[in-house]
């Protein structure tokens, strides 16, 4: 059974329907990418898993639990965490306070977990007292990922982690995501940078106009003539 199982999902915002009949699975420890053109509903798919977009039909189960009707503050208890594309840290809080809220639902975060996060993102250890709003874009992205890892989730949802980063940081960001996945955490990523995401992931989905279009191994999609022509710019 899959860790995350989205089936026949209709979703959107209020009366607006963005997704229709979307299927999506992520296995334990798997690295899955969702790619597709702007407005394809990639982020909406991720937001509806976390209860931020409105689910209008279909079902979402995580680790055997039906989370279709869960609010965000309940979803987080199931063992998955979410890094939004923008505004993913609290700007007026310090780095330490942001990390503390990353583990808000736990009574106690093991010190070893904080250490592991600092080891992966050393910049966070050096800037504990700094107000998050004054960090650079790349540092904020690192902090947002650090916060999501405070729960040691089974699955982490990353919404366009490379968006707005300087080109030399994009590679580093993808390396960090590889690290997280190698430690056993399943990753579901939405990316504008489709080629790089497909190169790195185990499996990918191509979404267009709110519907499943293609699905397959990352390399398989990268080398597919149709996918290349329609979605990867040749």
């Amino acid at each position: 059974m899959s860790l995350l199982d989205v089936s026949n999902l209709d979703a959107g915002y209020g009366d607006l329907q963005v997704l229709s009949d979307v299927d999506l699975t992520v296995d334990r420890g798997e690295y899955v990418a969702i790619v597709g053109p702007n407005g394809a509903g990639k982020s909406t798919a991720m937001k509806s898993v976390f209860g931020i977009a409105d689910r209008q039909g279909g079902s979402i189960t995580f680790d055997g639990t039906d989370i279709t009707a869960h609010s965000p503050e309940r979803v987080i208890h199931e063992g998955l965490s979410y890094v939004p594309q923008t505004e993913n840290v609290f700007p007026s809080l310090t780095v330490d306070e942001n990390l503390r809220l990353g583990g808000y639902i736990l009574d106690d975060v093991p010190e070893s977990r904080r250490e592991a996060i600092f080891e992966r993102f050393p910049v966070l250890a050096d800037r504990g007292e700094q107000v998050a709003g004054t960090l650079s874009g790349g540092q904020q992205q690192m902090l947002a990922m650090g916060c999501a890892l405070m729960l040691d989730p089974d699955l982490v949802l990353l919404d366009e982690p490379s968006a707005g980063l300087a080109p030399d940081l994009v590679d580093e960001m993808f390396d960090r995501i590889d690290d997280i996945n190698e430690m056993g955490t399943a990753v579901l990523i939405v990316e504008q940078n489709a080629k790089e995401a497909l190169r790195r992931c185990d499996r990918g989905y191509v979404l267009a106009n709110g519907e499943n279009r293609y699905e397959g191994g990352g390399d398989e999609l990268l080398n597919d003539e149709e996918v290349r022509r329609q979605f990867l710019g040749g």
Binding site: I52, E73, S92, E97, L101
Partner: peptide, 23 residues
């Protein structure tokens, strides 16, 4: 925790919910 959560909600209520804060 309650106080830091208050400031966090002042910043961004949606993100506070994503962190599991009972707003």
């Amino acid at each position: 925790d309650v106080g830091i959560a208050m400031r966090a909600m002042g910043d961004n209520e949606n993100l506070a919910r994503v962190r599991g804060i009972d707003t």
